[in-house]
Design a protein around this nucleic acid. Structure first.
Lengths: 346, 346
DNA sequence: TTGTAAGCGTTATCAA
DNA sequence: TTGATAACGCTTACAA
């Protein structure tokens, strides 16, 4: 690989002159400048990034750690985060823990498993001397994998930090649940069943809280009997919906699109029609929601916004250089309702 | 940040001794070794990666350039490639050109646009002194964006290099078209319409060629009139299918799942039933194919395998250190048929 | 068994 | 306006 020294020799100047020119320093002769730039262009010379950052003691590098790149919510967040970092002149380095790929859902309750994978990743971060870290969770929860002494400026995205000193950017699930509730109410549905996710899940709790708030505002009593808990997948939607049908409901709020699809399966099997005999809404606005028939009304996850905001906060921290004292912010980004044809006005 | 020097001082030894211990060199006293390792553990010292690779003149780093991380086929390829690189002890650095995000489909015919984005990425590669590159295309075609003098060992994935010196790993589209053809024939369909992608697209051409081969083997004449060309999206499936219905076909081979979904839309509107009045197959096995009703028979893209193979080839090149002479291999990975309920046996 | 010194490629400082 | 020199943190050859 060609170096400054060689460029310098070829131009009959010193290495420092070449460096000065390349770094746009003032006080360089027009003549030499032209000559050097020409040679640089000809040779395709690129300064060695390692040498540069070692010397400068700064590398404008941000690491993005994801729990699984293949999880549906992750790639858009990453894409948006990278876009912003790029624009701000930061390099990004993506580390993929492949948690789902390795263990399906069995790591959820096993912090030790995650710590084991995260440890080498963190070591690498420290070894690379990244300026900051964006940790992108696969699903929302309190995350507590980082060692006490972890000091790299970090922002959490799509998940929360147990350690309150780290900022986090998450979905506004409460508002999402509230919006769904008000919408169903506005369409005249008074007995609304809910197929929630796991009952101790943060998404579940917040969406349910918002839903209750909507009911309360309309002076409708919340009935715990109308809530069933699934595992976010199609099968559990299919499995739980019969219990709801026994309760005389006219609409079902599924807390994600996959479970809604399971409900569609059941409704179809019974020869009924969604958006007619029963109204259904989902959550996420995954691709599939537009292919169900009738198309599913749902609440779109603001994934790109989350990625953007997280990197914005991180870079803000890096550039302001303020000591992160005490409790950091938790930013909640609202979802956006997508109205389609799965809800009947009654 | 703590350095070897400081560790050395704390242990009353020299920096080289610390380095030797950390790098598992022989001829170090058990006693000092223990002491040093202890201090290293206590301080959480991590060697500076930049200093290391500068000194060692090697960094075991592979870059992955993607045209768009958000394109459905990309993340799985990346995930698999990263997994293999990890296992082999290579760091990966992902660069996302965000071509679709920036320009939708308008860059397809505009090589200059792409070169403009690729150029800084390549400069960065060279600046980081990566050992190798995996270029992941957003869709299959001949790629010709790299400068003449580009010398970094490179493998293409999901796309081909115009410059024959670079190996490529792509889908075996010809076999995919053939498999679809034989399957439909085996189900008794003799007049099969085709909704293809853009007519100059490599996927289109190869899948059509395979399809023709299947027909030929069954002694059925290929009828150009039964082929319509779309733009890979739902709308074009919907738009093109009426022409096919005029031709008395009993089945339709859609060259991707999205166009198949458009055909479903049309069939549904006409009050007919897929898998009964008309048989339909797709291609890709995107999520949506499992949510259409009836579930869509399709051909699964071997994305993980492509990512794995591409990195395997690249690392093979790096470790064998052979000069890449002349023409490189193009590896074709077969798709896997996914049989569901959208085809009627006649 | 351990330590000294040199060098990887760059840039900042300071002197010419 | 330019150049010599030192330093970033690490590893390695060689000397002790």
């Amino acid at each position: 690989m060609i170096t400054v020294k060689e460029i310098a020799q070829m131009c009959n100047v010193s290495a420092s002159t070449v460096s000065n020119i390349l770094n746009g320093k003032p006080n360089v002769g027009e003549e030499t400048k032209k000559r050097v730039l020409e040679v640089v262009a000809q040779t395709g010379y690129q300064p060695n990034y390692f040498a540069q950052s070692m010397r400068k003691q700064s590398n404008r590098m941000i690491s993005i750690i994801v729990e699984d790149l293949d999880e549906f919510s992750t790639a858009p967040i990453v894409e948006a985060a990278m876009a912003y970092c790029d624009d701000m002149g930061y390099r990004t380095i993506l580390m993929n823990m492949r948690l789902y790929d390795k263990w399906k859902a069995t790591w959820y309750d096993d912090d030790e498993k995650v710590r084991e994978v995260l440890k080498p990743a963190i070591q690498e971060l420290q070894s690379i001397r990244v300026d900051g870290l964006i940790y992108i969770a696969g699903h929302c929860r309190y995350i507590d994998y980082f060692p006490e002494q972890f000091k790299i400026p970090t922002v959490f995205a799509y998940g929360l930090s147990k350690d309150a000193k780290f900022p986090a950017v998450v979905i506004d699930d409460e508002k999402g649940g509230y919006d769904m509730g008000t919408y169903l109410l506005s369409m005249g549905h008074k007995r609304v069943g809910v197929i929630a996710g796991a009952d101790d899940n943060l998404h579940t709790k917040a969406r349910l809280a918002g839903f209750k708030r909507a009911l309360a505002e309309a002076d409708i009593a919340f009935d715990e009997e109308l809530v069933r808990y699934g595992e976010w997948n199609r099968e559990s939607g299919y499995r739980e919906v019969p219990y709801l049908f026994e309760k005389n409901i006219t609409a079902i709020f599924c807390m994600n699109d996959s479970m809604a699809a399971g409900v569609y399966d059941f409704v179809y099997e019974r020869g009924m029609e969604v958006g007619n005999d029963i109204s259904i809404v989902g959550y996420d606005n995954k691709d599939l929601s537009d292919y169900l028939r009738p198309r599913l009304t749902t609440n779109e996850l603001p994934l790109k916004k989350i990625g953007h905001k997280a990197s914005e906060i991180l870079i803000g921290m890096l550039e302001s250089n303020e000591e992160v004292g005490g409790k950091a912010d938790v930013i909640k980004i609202p979802c956006e309702m997508v109205y389609r044809e799965s809800v009947l006005k009654v």
